[in-house]
Every structure is written in C-alpha cells, then in structure tokens.
Amino acid sequence: MSAPDSARLRASPQLILRTRWISLCRPYEAHMRKINLLCIPQGFRPGLLASVAPTGLNIARGEQMGQAFSRPPKPRRRRMPVLFCSAPRLKMDRPACPPAGTNVCPTGISRVLLAAAKSGYSQPFSMSEPADANSTAPPAVRAADGGGPTEFAPVLWPRLAELWILMTIVIFVFLRILGSHTAQRILSLVRHVFGR
C-alpha cells in the first residue's frame, strides 16, 4: 500500500474486521453505514458480509493493508483471527481500546463501537464491561468470569458441531418418531397400501 493510500485511510472512518463470525457483525450493522472502508482478514469470505454491510462499501483484505493493519500483538493468542481489533476487547483481561501500535482506526469509530457494545451488544459472551454494582445489564458482563467465543473457535470445528447436532436429530427421528406406536401404525399402513 502506498503512503498516500495509507494517509487517506487514516483520515477517514474505517473498521477492521477480524472475525469469521458474521453473526457477531450484526450489532455493528448500523455503524458500517458510517464508514467508507472495511478491512477483513485473509480468508474471510466477503459474501458473508452481504447481509450486514451496505452496498458500495469499500472492502479491503488485511494483507493489502500492509504493516499498519497487521494483527496487534496478542500474548497467549492462537493463529485464529480475533474479533474487531478496533472494537472493545471481549476479554476482561485485555484493554478496552485498540492496542498500541495499531492506531490505524480513528478514535471516533472506536468510541462508536464501544458505545454500541455497551448499549446493545447482545451476544452471549459480551464480557466487555467491568463489574458495575448497580448495573441492570446481563450479569455475565458484571462478573470477571472469563471465557468467550474467541476462546471457542479454535477448539470447535464447525463441521463437527453440525455433524453432532445432525446425529442427535437423526437418532431422535429413529427412536422417538419412527419408534413410536403412531409411526409404526403409519408405516404398516404405508406397507399395506404399497403391498396392494
């Protein structure tokens, strides 16, 4: 990326997307309308963004952004892409602002995203807020419990999850539906009809 390009990017609102979970982008849908460039990590399918990103939004891959958009230093992190690097971190033990050295995002966006996370972030693992004695927010954000989806993805292969769920459904159909008296009666009726 050339120096002028970099300067242009720094001067305009932008969002660096470092997640493969499109569902986690949905709370930020409104803010995507306020930006003119979205940076997505290598391997992320832009097609997934179609439902949340406005038409005409400039999308750039992380590898095109050069050093300025490199992944922030993450101790104890695995190679899996993490969530919005310009958004508040999802872990209590991480800073709630973009890490130093990756100041490619205007502060304004960070503030917008932080506000969004506080007011409307509704994922089960929104651990971004500190404990607040009088808060009426979900208690999970109050407790320093740790855990969250960023820890989850490397453990779980999505296809494995789907396979497990499919298997339970199939067993259910066999045991509880086809194995029931009603199903047996229907099956005998079908056999009877086709037997004729």
């Binding site: 997934l48 994922q123 999505p158 769920i165």
Partner: peptide, 29 residues
C-alpha cells in the same frame, strides 16, 4: 441455549438451521 448461540456464530449457515431444528423439535415434541 448458550450452545445454540455459539454454534450459530461458528457455523452461520447449516449450524443455524440445525440448531433451530433442534429447538423446534424439543419444543414441539
């Protein structure tokens, strides 16, 4: 329910459908 939301996040297409099927089966049954 926590698992439902998690799988829907990890496997957005088929995972979401399968989770919805599981919940629908549970409730309807």
């Amino acid at each position: 329910v926590v698992g439902w939301r998690t799988v829907a996040g990890v496997a957005p297409r088929l995972g979401r459908v399968l989770c919805a099927t599981v919940v629908a089966i549970s409730v309807l049954y």
